[in-house]
Write a protein that binds this DNA or RNA. Structure first.
Length: 504
RNA sequence: CGGGCUGUGGCUCAGCCUGGUAGAGCGCUUCGUUCGGGACGAAGAGGUCGUGGGUUCGAAUCCCGCCAGCCCGACCA
């Protein structure tokens, strides 16, 4: 009965299957009866709430405010920006009716039949550029109305062919920032600022190192002039786009007619941006830090920082132990970690201690604290860290633990980032020739991020994507990638290396 | 939208070829023994066998339609 690892198969054996098992074992989410749509369970949603709250603080700190726009977009709005419309056309859910009629069947059952066909169908938003653009057009009259810095927390729907929990679902939760500016320079600066916010959030909150960079024209958001991305590497060495920030130029302003009277008394089009991250961050988090015993959560976003497990071997001392655990929890909750009160749960459920312990291992709680009669007598607690083995346990004086708990959490947070960074760096290589490139991504090879000199065309890029399933993840912003060289495919001069990888 | 596969208690699946009216493991409930620990034993609850039709005395099992899901391609946060 005792398995080596809590999750089978292990990451090495079958990474995609491991991922699915982890999502289930950690009780994060499940597939629903609606195709491609997931039920996010409390543990997974708690994670999202923390991500949401902490990002929201950063958005507010950079001058943005939240608003909410309709779920349904008039079909005609999507026809205004051709490139954008084409980009999303194949994955739109369309609302065509507005009422149902109950029709009695011969067998006595009732069938609901849609009636009330709509003159103009609505599209369930795949993203909200068009409808927010329409609002912006009403709100902006003068350069004095700019910039307009709006964010929306919402659900969107993209009828994906192949859904996977958190990574690609038909409906998903996200935030979409939409801003309008007087000048291109300001809009570009905004795009870059939010790109940095994402980079920092991934690094400091999710403990995931990313490579910030720009997408190539092929990979750009439909309708954007420039798409910035933060690319993370997860444990199967594939890349995942964790956040994007788009400079939209005047394309959407033109489509939505966002005009204003400028300082020089001329009518001008606004310069807009949009930027977003989604529940995909949770999938990224799982794949970046998870191990063969389940999820490993960075303390900053964990729904619970600490779970206290009362050890109650004897009925006589049971109440005493529970009281002591509650008292410890209260003491801990008075402390804070990065400005948030410590989240501490006392798991009083009357189930076998071992399975209870394993449940929290699988859920990835950063610290587990056991306290039983012996600990109370000794004034100690048993502390287990999720970033160490499931059996690793340290007995420490209770007062010492209380005094060091914040430090311990930060140590776990830092350790996860260090581990993820080491993993990424170990699988990132600068290569120079086509042969090296092919060997790097050959079947059976470990793969990873290949840093290549590139001066090829969009068609060259597409061919590589088709033939080798490898794409340019980004053209890094960092000067660390800058150096003179020759394109590995065309031999043309190149001033910077780009990141090639397989991706999610 | 093309190619392959699958739909059986909460979960994973067996049974289908060779029709006779439903099984296992896990999970769940109760009791007992354990218990700093993903325990053991016993008893028990739980199933229109995706759906509609056909063949048959009789269908989870054979035939046809439909629906849903999974995997492989094109698309994607």
């Amino acid at each position: 009965m005792s398995a080596q690892t809590a999750i089978t198969p292990t990451r090495d054996k079958d990474f995609p299957e491991w991922y699915q098992q982890v999502v289930r074992a950690a009780d994060l989410a499940e597939n629903s009866e609606v195709r491609g749509c997931m039920v996010i369970k409390p543990w997974g949603y708690g994670l999202w709430e923390n991500i949401q709250r902490q990002l929201d603080v950063k958005f507010k700190a950079t001058g943005h405010v939240n608003a909410y726009f309709p779920l349904l977009i008039p079909l005609s709005y999507l026809e205004k920006e051709a490139e954008h419309a084409e980009g999303f056309a194949t994955e739109c859910a369309v609302v065509t009716h507005h009422r149902l009629e109950a029709v009695k069947q011969p067998d006595g059952s009732t069938k609901m039949v849609p009636t009330g066909k709509l003159e103009e169908p609505f599209v369930i938003r795949p993203t909200s550029e068009t409808i927010i653009g329409a609002a912006f057009a009403r709100w902006v009259q003068s350069y004095r109305d700019l910039p307009l810095l709006i964010n929306q927390w919402a659900n969107v729907m993209r009828w994906e062919m192949r859904p996977r929990l958190f990574l690609r679902t038909a409906e998903f939760l996200w935030q979409e920032g939409h801003t309008a500016h007087e000048t291109a320079e300001e809009a570009i600066a905004e795009t870059q600022q939010m790109h940095r916010v994402y980079e920092e959030f991934l690094r400091d909150h999710l403990a995931i190192p990313v490579i910030p960079g720009a997408k190539t024209a092929n990979e750009r958001f439909p309708g954007a002039l420039d798409t910035l991305t933060v690319e993370a590497m997860v444990q199967d060495r594939k890349a995942i786009q964790a956040g994007t920030s788009h400079y939209l130029g005047q394309n959407f302003a033109k489509a939505a007619n966002i005009q204003f009277l400028g300082r020089d008394n001329t009518r001008q089009l606004a310069h807009t941006t949009s930027w977003g991250v989604s529940t995909r961050l949770i999938g990224t988090l799982i794949m970046a830090h998870g191990d063969d015993d389940g999820v490993v959560l960075p303390p900053r976003v964990a729904p619970q920082h600490i779970v206290i497990l009362p050890v109650t071997p004897k009925e006589e001392t049971r109440q005493e132990v529970l009281d002591a655990c509650e008292a410890l929890a209260s003491t801990l909750r008075a402390q804070s970690f990065h400005g948030e009160a410590l989240r501490v749960l006392v798991d009083k459920r009357d189930i076998a201690g071992g399975s209870k312990n394993w449940e929290w291992i699988k859920k990835g709680v950063p610290l587990r604290v056991e306290m039983g009669p012996r600990d109370i007598a000794n004034g100690s607690v048993a502390v287990c860290r999720r970033d160490q083995g499931p059996k690793a346990k340290e007995f420490v004086p209770k007062e010492d633990f209380i005094g060091s708990v914040v430090e311990r959490l930060q140590d776990i947070q830092d350790g996860l980032l260090a581990r993820a960074t080491a993993m990424r760096d170990a699988n990132m290589k600068a290569l120079d020739t086509l042969e090296e490139f092919q060997a790097f991504f050959a079947e059976g090879a470990p793969g990873g991020f290949a840093l290549m000199h590139w001066a090829g065309s969009g068609d060259d890029e597409e061919r590589l994507a088709k033939e080798m399933k490898v794409t340019i993840r980004c053209i890094p912003i960092s000067e660390a990638f800058a150096e003179e060289g020759k394109c590995f495919l065309t031999g043309k001069p190149s001033a910077k290396r780009v990141v090639f990888a397989r991706s999610y």
